[in-house]
């Protein structure tokens, strides 16, 4: 049954997923070209100086990719379910509703996770080609919360889309934005916050059950 659900969810989100993957690759290419250009134009030692001594964020172009991907995937996956209340069909499938919902978001979660790991590996490889491992670790540490922010954006968007009552959506939206902002607005590493980000980020995955319950019970 899980396989069938994967199949259905994949049909909905594949174009969004490939689109976001392509966009990520384009932006990573741009990051790569940007470093190559910087190394060429100011010379390696000066470019290293910018990065190492002044923390020049040569990789900030990837800052908003995860959030964008999270929101786009949530829309691709859940707006067709809300269109004419198709979620009723899913809820009527012979399985526990909460299990179905968890399975649905697990599919988006794993796809996003894969995409973010790909982005991290590529941005790590690109940085590692030009810079020492200290810089790579700085880059990965800084972009870590952006990736978690992408997952949070996905979970929260899904919950907001599923919520049937507009007034409750309007409550969720500003708080979601405020929460998301903590993950993505910073361009700095958080050496002590990874665990907090990871934990609180994954915790938002259960948020979807409440609006789904509202949908289910028409309240």
């Amino acid at each position: 049954m899980y396989n069938a659900l994967i199949y259905k969810e994949w049909l909905k989100i594949r174009w969004a997923f490939w689109g976001m993957t392509l966009l990520s690759l384009l932006i990573l290419t741009y990051v790569l070209l940007n470093i190559a250009y910087g190394m060429e134009s100011v010379g390696p030692k000066n470019f290293w100086g910018f990065v190492i001594l002044m923390n020049y964020p040569f990789f900030t172009d990837i800052q908003y990719i995860p959030v964008l991907a999270g929101i786009v995937l949530a829309f691709a996956q859940f707006s067709p379910e809300m269109n004419s209340s198709r979620l009723k069909l899913t809820m009527h499938l012979p399985a526990k509703e909460n299990t179905l919902l968890f399975q649905m978001i697990s599919i988006g979660f794993f796809l996003l996770l894969g995409l973010f790991i790909l982005i991290s590996v590529l941005v790590g490889t690109i940085s590692g080609f030009y810079f020492p491992k200290e810089v790579v670790s700085f880059v990965l540490n800084t972009s870590f919360s952006w990736s978690i922010g992408g997952l949070v954006a996905y979970f929260l968007s899904a919950a907001i889309i599923i919520e049937p009552v507009w007034s409750r959506r309007l409550v969720l939206i500003p708080f979601s934005l405020g929460f998301l902002d903590l993950f993505i607005s910073t361009g700095n590493p958080h050496y002590q916050l990874e665990v907090f980000f990871l934990f609180s980020g994954l915790l938002t995955s259960v948020l979807i059950l409440l609006p789904a319950y509202h949908f289910k019970r028409g309240i």
Binding site: N98, F175, F179, V206, L207, L209, L210
Partner: peptide
């Protein structure tokens, strides 16, 4: 039960965000 947990997470999210931004 899960729905109650979901609601609690929702409450905590609002408390957390409110205690930063307000």
């Amino acid at each position: 039960m899960l729905i109650k947990i979901s609601r609690i997470v929702c409450l905590l999210l609002i408390v957390f965000v409110a205690s930063i931004y307000i």
